[in-house]
Amino acid sequence: MTTKVIDWLDERLGLQGIYSTVLDRKVPKVNWWFTLGSASLFLFAMQVLTGIFLTVYYVPSPDHAYDSIQFIMNGVPFGWLMRGIHHWGASLMVIFVFAHMLRTFFYGAYKYPRELTWLTGAVLLLATVGMGFTGYLLPWNQRAYWATTVGTQIAGKVPIIGPYITQVMRGGSDLSAVTLARFFSIHIWFLPAVIGAMIGVHMYLIIRLGIAGVPGKED
C-alpha cells in the first residue's frame, strides 16, 4: 500500500530522481570539517522555525517589545525554549558559517569551477552577520539599545557619506521606534529572503559541480 502511494507520487513528481540527485551524489573522501555547511543549513532552518514562532507574540514597538519578550519567557509554555533556541542558535550559526568559510578557504575549495559557490557563500556570511546585528536590537533592553547605538555609529565612520549611512540605518538622527521597526523588517523579511535565495543558488551549484575534496600533495 505504502509502496503503491509512493510509486504513484514518484511517477508524477519524480521524487526518486530528486532523491538520487540530491542525496546519492558521489563525494570524495572527506572529513568532519565538510559537515559545517549542512550544520549551517540545519541551524538556519531552526532559526526560521523558532523565529516564525517568536513573531506570534513579539511586538516590534518600544512600548511593547520588552514586555512581549518577558511574556514569551514567563507566560507562554515553552516560550523560554523557543527564544533560547533562537538566541543560542544565532551565535552558533555565525560560528558555523564562519568556520565553513575558513574550511573552504584553507582547502582551496573556492577555485575553478566553484567561484560562484564561494561568492554566494560570501553573501550568505555577510547576511548571517546582518541577521545577528539586526536581531540584537529587537529585545529592546539596555544592551540592545547601546549595542545598536555603537554599531550604527561605527558605520558612520565611513568617509564623507558616513553620517548619512548612520541616519538611514537609524531612520533618523537617534535610535527610535523607527529604528526598531526597520531592524525588525530587515531581520524577518529582507535578509531571510536574501539568505533563502542565496542558499538556493549555493545548493544548486554544490549539486551541479560536486564538492572539492581534501587537497593532496600534488594539488
Binding site: 514562532f53 506570534v56 507566560g75 507562554v76 509554555p77 515553552f78 523557543m82
Partner: peptide
Amino acid sequence: LPAVGYLVGP
C-alpha cells in the same frame, strides 16, 4: 509538542 503548547497554552 512544545510548539503546539507554545501556540495554544496561554
